[in-house]
Nucleic acid binder design. Structure first.
Length: 259
DNA sequence: ATGGTGGCCTTGCCA
């Protein structure tokens, strides 16, 4: 079972790249973030032609998350089931594919430390942890995939000194990220590459960041401990950041073999 | 060189 996540930064603008990537990598499940697309505009039929069922939680101009699957797409839900008011943004969608509970998540950016949006980000991460506690079990096959907008360690950014006082690396954000892992999820790329630095999933469009290797590792595949045991390989396809009209994020893709 | 890009549509805001 091949599972992937990709923040496409507008599915409308990225559709040719997404179709090309899906055709070549043939994932069983692809989690997409930042569709920036209204619900009625989602190209379900184009994905159906490629062999995928699809579900989308969209709002239009911003955010928007989707799951494509070749291996079933059941028990779909949007947002959090935690007894609190609905999240106003379309930032997470859940489905069960081949017996694996999957989430495609786009965590708020935060904008600036101390900004209202930063507090919303911390609250959002806390709600994700609560949702998992209330609705799931860490012994099941489950994976949260997506753009977390958090770099958990200093080596997950190109130069920590450039991030003094910045979002994505602040202690409250990192603590909130590790609170989610502490429920029973594994940073699977870090697990496979415990000694690596310079493995990134995002490079800003500005400043020629990609060519200068000024990246950040902020997109993750986070399986439960038992599911992580079934992982065979995980890679970042940084080739997807090259060429014509790339997203500013690269896909992360992992293979799992369930006995 | 004190800005750089890209995407959306609210031609400013967001990342």
């Amino acid at each position: 079972m091949r599972i992937a996540t990709w923040n496409v930064n507008s599915l409308k603008a990225r559709m040719p790249r997404v179709v090309d990537w899906v055709t070549r990598f043939n994932p069983s499940v692809l989690c997409i973030q930042e569709t920036k697309m209204a619900s009625d505009a989602f190209p379900h039929s184009d994905f159906e032609e490629l062999g995928y069922e699809s579900v989308h939680n969209g709002e239009g101009r911003w955010n928007g998350v989707a799951i494509l699957s070749k291996v079933g797409l059941d028990d779909v839900s949007h947002g959090f089931n935690d007894g609190k008011p609905d999240d106003p943004d379309a930032r997470i969608i859940w489905a069960t594919c081949n017996g694996v509970r999957i989430a495609s998540a786009y965590i708020p950016n935060g904008r600036e430390v101390g900004h209202d949006h930063y507090h919303y980000k911390l609250e959002w991460l806390s709600r994700l942890r609560s949702h998992l506690e209330l609705n799931n079990d860490p012994s099941e096959n489950l994976a949260v995939l997506g753009d977390f907008n958090v770099a958990p360690e200093d080596r997950d950014v190109w130069d920590i000194k450039s991030f003094n006082g910045a979002t994505h690396v602040s202690k409250p954000e990192r603590d909130a990220f590790y609170e989610i892992l502490d429920w029973g999820l594994v940073d699977s790329l870090r697990y496979q590459c415990p000694g690596e630095a310079g493995v990134y999933t995002f490079w800003d469009y500005r400043q020629g960041s990609f060519y200068k290797k000024m990246g950040m590792r902020i997109d993750f595949i986070l399986p439960t401990v038992p599911m992580n045991e079934a992982m065979e390989i995980i890679v970042v396809d940084r080739n997807a950041r090259k060429g014509e009209k790339p997203s500013d994020h690269a896909p992360v893709v992992a293979d799992f073999s369930f006995s």
